[in-house]
Design a protein around this nucleic acid. Sequence first.
DNA 1: ACACGTTACGGCAACCGTAAGGATT
DNA 2: AATCCTTACGGTTGCCGTAACGTGT
Lengths: 294, 294
Amino acid sequence: MIHLERVATFLALAASGGFREAAKRTGLSQPTVTQHLKWLEQALNVTLIDRNNAGSTLTPEGRAFLPYAENLVRTYDRARALFEKNSIVIGASSNIGIYLLQPYLKRYKEVSAHKLELIIDDNPAIAGKLERFEIDVAIMEWWDHRPGFAATVWLQEELVVIVPNDHPWAGMRGIPRKWLKGQDFLGGEAGTGTGRLLQEFLGKDADTIGVSMQFGSTEAVKNAVRAGLGISLVMATAIEHESRNGELCAIPIEEMPPRKDIYVIRRECGTHKTPALEFTNFLLHQNSQHFSAV
Amino acid sequence: MIHLERVATFLALAASGGFREAAKRTGLSQPTVTQHLKWLEQALNVTLIDRNNAGSTLTPEGRAFLPYAENLVRTYDRARALFEKNSIVIGASSNIGIYLLQPYLKRYKEVSAHKLELIIDDNPAIAGKLERFEIDVAIMEWWDHRPGFAATVWLQEELVVIVPNDHPWAGMRGIPRKWLKGQDFLGGEAGTGTGRLLQEFLGKDADTIGVSMQFGSTEAVKNAVRAGLGISLVMATAIEHESRNGELCAIPIEEMPPRKDIYVIRRECGTHKTPALEFTNFLLHQNSQHFSAV
DNA sequence: ACACGTTACGGCAACCGTAAGGATT
DNA sequence: AATCCTTACGGTTGCCGTAACGTGT
């Protein structure tokens, strides 16, 4: 067994590439850094860092150990945050983090002393960060119900068809659902929010044209639609700005418009009131239309 | 920062429900256990355990901390296994772990000194365990390509239709693919291997009847088919035994039979030769038909 | 000589186990 | 009084920083 502090020293070394620099960062004396690393290397029975006069570097073993080390200190950090009640790290998939969540975060900042941090990534990556204790709460449009987590449907976002301004459908107040069948839709890559939506609501029959992902697939899809490459289906919130500005035309779908569940997911923590739980409750109460966990 | 040993002591306490018992398990003296816990509680500034004359129990805070504590000691344990080269923990989704993997594990035991441990669970749970450093390698029929992991297609399993012995199709050497459309298939719950298969190869149009999951959905599906409730689609390996015994009838599909990719997934570890990498290479070389990572 | 990391060493505090001290039943 | 956990205490060891020491440029 080992002191976590030594692991932190290793991380400082890995990040700074030098014992003296690592000593400065950790506030330790430089010989102590030597000692910490030596202990760690002894405990693992392996050389982690290639000592070199001009910049020390990680050995292959050191590189292999790195994610484990990061996990160790981060887990401890997040465990402390459970009780110090002043910090929440939120993870959100791109569409939600970019468009939907921002006003809620602003409001939460006003009513709470919690220090908020938002991490945006794709769905599987966010799920991974949740598992690895990198984030305390996740807000996503997708969740496989794994054990150990509490998932709640936060709200249901309406989906709208977006078309360029010169499209025959432009200006329509609504379109029948059956018109969607057989249409070519942009942005259907697997793994992206848009891709999953298309898959789910149109099934295999709707052939989709791929659009290479830029920074956040919805941005790419919007640009492609604007350029006249085709049409697509997105969350209404994601298109609000362009719709108001008249850059794109967003059309609701008639007869039972498709809605996408948005989940709030946090680690189960029994009856203890964690900051993550407070934040979750805040989100749920901001919205009257909330439903219980599945 | 904290000694990991103290966290381990907390886990022993949580598991045993008493300071004396925890002392026995950890090999420490009983007052030392008291001290370890006190330090940990001081570091987190919270009470973790309700001291009680008749069995000490976790406080709500203790219960919340428990998964973090488990993650800490397990991560350290797996990090050590990276270098001690004698232990591999393998995770597999149910079908693969139960049917497909066993002969390979037996062969690997004969050629390697590694101590093997196999954990079987559903796909999302295995993915979670991989993220949390609970397992070193995962073998699954599904993978979203998340960063930090190396996924390789190990083999491609053929899918066969299974029908009861008194079914009109029974005894056929093969059936055309188009016959499958419109059939009712058993075992299509979301999240299970069978469910995903049906979804993928038949799409939304094939209405599926749910079968409640028993221990491992394929077992349940086989029983249901045997009982005459319907037919289903499973990996050929999963049905080999019953097919030979004449308990069920397995029929290949003509014209491009559907095949399911099986992935081997491990944490990326640079150039260091981990036990997990050795095992992965063993699996891949056991099979000539292997393909490169996606 | 200069910058790097390592070794040597002295002092302080951490940390163990043993033994005695409450508290609850 | 029988268990439980906590406190007290002494000896050992761990672990820090300072200072002196190799080593490569």
